[in-house]
Computed example of a mutant assay.
Amino acid sequence: MKISALMLAGGQSKRFTGIKQLADINGQPMLLRTLNQLTGSGSLCTLLSEFNVILGANAERISPVLPHYVTAHLCSDWHKGMGATLAFGVHNVNRESSHLLVTLADQVALGREHMETMLHHCESAPNKIISASYNGILGAPVIFPRCYFAQLMTLQADSGARKIIQQHIQEVVSVDLPDAKYDIDTQRDLANWRQSAD
């Protein structure tokens, strides 16, 4: 298997009232911290064929904080929503990749051990969609086999990967990842997460 990974980090973060990707968490911009947490500061990338980060709004301010082990791609249609950004990301996946791991920049509680769990399930069931489960929903992080790439590339607006997960629910392996419930959409979310992490 050759697994590509991408992180969606292109949103404008209107509800956050600021550049969410650069919000300070323990002295690091959120995007950098999330990447370092997910990859063990890049060590996970030895198990992946590539790790792309999809930028959009405020890309010129965000790109300087990206670590050396990822590749940035600028989505000009970021304003159309997460679906369009994900579709763009899939268009840029290595053609030899057999699977795609989709992650989010604001899932601040996830770490390398969670990604290794996802990859282990993918190895055990390579033809299945491997989806995190939290708060009774299925969503990111999620691993798609290549046979779903064409559908992912048709996504538009704010219709993200969850739509395709639901369309193929019988082909989904659910992985219990309660820490995936923490995503930062507002300043209050950030304050609440900081308090819970203390």
Rank of each mutant, 00 (worst) to 15 (best):
Q187H: 10
R33K: 15
L8C: 05
Q151D: 14
S49Y: 04
E60N: 11
L110S: 00
G139N: 12
L100F: 04
K128I: 04
E60M: 05
G139T: 10
N127F: 10
T154I: 06
L22F: 09
I165G: 00
I169K: 08
N52D: 13
I54E: 03
Q156L: 10
C122K: 08
Q37W: 07
A72Q: 07
I62C: 01
K128L: 09
I143C: 04
W193Q: 02
K14V: 13
I143F: 03
K20E: 12
R112K: 15
L190P: 01
V65K: 06
I164K: 09
G56I: 01
V70L: 06
A157F: 11
D24I: 12
S174A: 14
Y134M: 11
I137T: 15
L6W: 05
V70M: 02
S63F: 09
K163S: 10
T154Q: 15
I184W: 02
G40F: 02
S159W: 13
N26F: 10
C75N: 15
T39N: 08
L104K: 13
G42S: 06
I54M: 05
M82F: 11
R162K: 14
Y134K: 11
S13G: 12
R194F: 03
L55E: 01
I165A: 00
D183N: 15
E50T: 08
I169E: 09
L155E: 07
R61T: 12
E113R: 11
A9E: 02
G81Y: 11
